[in-house]
């Protein structure tokens, strides 16, 4: 059996990103506030993607990502520097999402699916339609997952992070994360089966 704790994806490139992050943090702390734009540019898209999936709303996800970046900037001085900077940043992002979800503000908003905007590149039109329907149904089902399961599923399956990285971001143990991801898969399978039966 291979190890679940795979090395950080893209070893050399992620080291490079980490070095660039540390450089941006140092320069920001030294008073070059524009240096923080490097962090925004390197990680803004991931933050938006994760936050948008957590709250099932793209524009709200962007809002939460901006808030996470602003909170990170203000508290840069408290970053201990003993891990990857982006794991700390994403943790702040996840906390922003949790705060929002806990506040219950999401309850009144309909879940948004992102699959309809970009077609799956499939040459078979029937299959494309099937894939698209499955993707849309899956997006809706992900939005209905309990927050803890959604968080683990999104980071593992849609952001393609490994369990060690997710542990570094969320602080949840690897074994608990595995349980959460699998429970999410079971819930999603049931939700999709219910949807099929209903239609």
């Amino acid at each position: 059996m291979t190890s679940a704790a795979a090395p950080e994806a893209g070893g050399d490139v992620t080291d490079l990103v980490d070095a660039a992050d540390r450089d941006s943090v140092e320069r920001t702390m030294d008073g070059d506030t524009q240096a923080f734009a490097g962090i925004v540019r390197r990680h803004g898209a991931t933050l938006v993607a994760v936050c948008a999936r957590m709250v099932a709303d793209r524009s709200l996800g962007e809002e939460l990502a901006q808030e996470a970046l602003a909170r990170t900037y203000s508290s840069l001085g408290s970053w201990r520097g003993d891990g990857r900077f982006r794991h700390w940043l994403y943790r702040i992002g996840m906390n922003c999402c949790r705060d929002y979800i806990k506040a219950g503000a999401r309850a009144e908003r309909p879940a948004e699916t992102f699959a309809a905007d970009e077609p799956f590149h499939n040459r078979d039109p029937e299959r494309e339609l099937g894939d698209r329907e499955l993707a849309e149904a899956l997006e809706s089902a992900i939005a209905q997952l309990p927050a803890a399961n959604r968080e683990a599923f999104v980071l593992f399956h849609t952001e393609n992070l490994d369990y060690e990285q997710i542990h570094a971001i969320t602080g949840v143990s690897v074994s608990a994360l595995k349980v959460r991801v699998h429970r999410a898969r079971v819930m999603l399978k049931k939700a999709l089966a219910d949807l099929r039966r209903a239609s």
Binding site: V40, V48, A65, E67, S74, A135, L138, I142, H157, N160
Partner: peptide, 27 residues
């Protein structure tokens, strides 16, 4: 799930985010 299209930030995200960032107390 792995192939789901990624929700992307709208154009000008970096500038908007930086405006919000710089409105905060400097670290």
């Amino acid at each position: 799930a792995r192939r789901l299209p990624r929700p992307a930030p709208a154009e000008g995200f970096t500038a908007r985010a930086m405006a919000r960032v710089l409105a905060r107390r400097p670290p």
